[in-house]
Amino acid sequence: MDTLIQAFVFPGLLYILLWTVGLFWFFRKFMAKLHKRVGPHYNGPAGTYQTLFDFSKLLTKESITPHGVNPYLFSMMPLLALITAMLPAAFIPWTEDYPVVVTSYGLLALVVLIGIEPFLLFLTGFGSENKYSFLGGIRVLAQSISMETAFLLSALSPALLFGTMNLTEIVEQSTWLSFLILFPGFVVYFIALLGLLEQPPFNIPDAEQEIVYGFYTEYSGTNYFLLKMAAFAEFMAVFGTATTLFLGGHYGIFFDGYIFFFVKMLMVAIVMMTIRAATPRITLKQMLSFSWRYLVPISLLNVAWVMVAKVFFFGSI
């Protein structure tokens, strides 16, 4: 029974569905505010039902598989992408009673699962038999390869500091001091996160003014819904990892609980949205040179800094 609830309610399917609908609505409303618009308004209180209706519309629409594509690759990949994006939820310590899967290699599992996602998206573009999709797929690959190094190195810095890959232990050991030590790592993690999630200024793979919608171009109906939901589940995985690794998980100010975990994830989302509203896209070349010239060296320096800080503040290696 417990397993069923975990798989379908929390932190499984229903939770992720709710998160997707809620976060999508929040993104729209928040962006609208920054754009001096109103945003969703008519359906439900403050337009909250709008995303629900949009998703139900997508689910009921005909799913078109274009002529000439590889149908298995084309229809399998969205499903695989969604499942891969949902899996990290099982490893994240939402409260004291979680994670669902207790392992001492939780961090490794998260990094691997988040790292696989771009390759699945590349395959959707590869299987679409469309020039825009193909270019989008290639861009996903180029971007994820150059961002993943920095992502991995910065995500590993808490493990180095606390000497464990067990996420529960990392959360338990985190203090204000460790937050300050890990702050440079958090900044690098955040920038790499923008690249991995294809958010401005790194929204190069689905740059609609250049290559229409990148790897999404040929998708519609249910498959598009699955891909969009995968993207939002991926948001959750990445924000949740950030909260666990750098922001102290469910620990709060007066009491501990899931609400603090949620608020911390939302704070990361708000920063991401604000950047989205004020930064234009950069080009692929600029992204590559930024990533390899600055981000990767800085993430290496960060590892060195964490080691020095560990010796200095904690007195051991």
């Binding site: 920054l34 754009h35 001096k36 618009r37 401005p200 929204n203 740059a207 609609e208 003014q209 509203a277 004020a278 930064t279 234009p280 896209r281």
Partner: peptide, 11 residues
């Protein structure tokens, strides 16, 4: 807009 930023257009 062509740089993927719609804020100025809306304003």
């Amino acid at each position: 807009n062509n740089l993927g930023l719609h804020t100025l257009f809306m304003w």
